[in-house]
Amino acid sequence: MVLQLFITGISMGMLYALMAMGLILIVKAVGVLNFAHGQLFMLGAYITWSLTNQLKLPLWAMIIAMIVCFCIVGLSFMFTVYWPLRNSPWKVTVVISTLGASIALKEAVRLIWSFIPLLSKPLIDKVIRIGDAVMNVQYIFIIIISGALMLFVYFLFEKTFIGKIMQATAQNRYAAELIGIPSVVAIAGTYMISMCMSGVGGWLAAPLFLVSQSLGTFAQKAFAGIVVGGFGSIKGAVVGCVLVGLIESFSILITDAYKDAVVFGVLILVLIIRPTGIFGEKIEEKA
């Protein structure tokens, strides 16, 4: 039982972390939160559902098509929701615009795929037994794939030249453009990567939960994870999200109905005890 809860918790946490990491990358690149991130996650689930069940693509083709689709979605999202507002003196306008996008995406999905939840088959339809725990292989699968993806993106951003370019743009767009980095490329790249992460998350989550519009609410757990983990740090967000997943999964031992309440209760508790989050450092503002 405990092992089962543990694995479920970690795999849920990994899903949240996929979203959280994408969110933080966007925050770092453009300084604004994306409140439509949950809807992007949901869109990922729908797109992959269509690719597998309607176009009946084999797995390898599906993955390629999926990534292409996500990049297109990420790009068009960035050019409609963020780019026209990039010079706005007030960041709130961008935040509200992402809110509008979340409503529009949710409705667009409902119009295209209808509101009836869709069933998505797991890649390997099996259950495994570990001791007396019975669980779906998909959970393990989630942990492996999302872990690998996050590591990949982490190294891409921290260790490679492309990542350095993106970070430079994030820190000072003006200076970055002076030395010849077009900020549009870096920002577009960030949005594409971020969308890919969320989309893959949606794809992975689909078999466990039906493909429906309620997948969009997953982002709220990712938000919670980011706060618990500490501000703006990618590592913190991942750890925070995994913690949130674990808390959520183990809270079943105490209560079922208040699962969400426990998560957000912990969130508020963390704020009171350690307002900077687990990994957060006290950042002194630039005067």
Partner: peptide, 12 residues
């Protein structure tokens, strides 16, 4: 609702 969502973006 779709128009509403898009409208919000355009508004901003």
């Amino acid at each position: 609702k779709l128009i509403y969502g898009v409208g919000v973006i355009i508004l901003m």
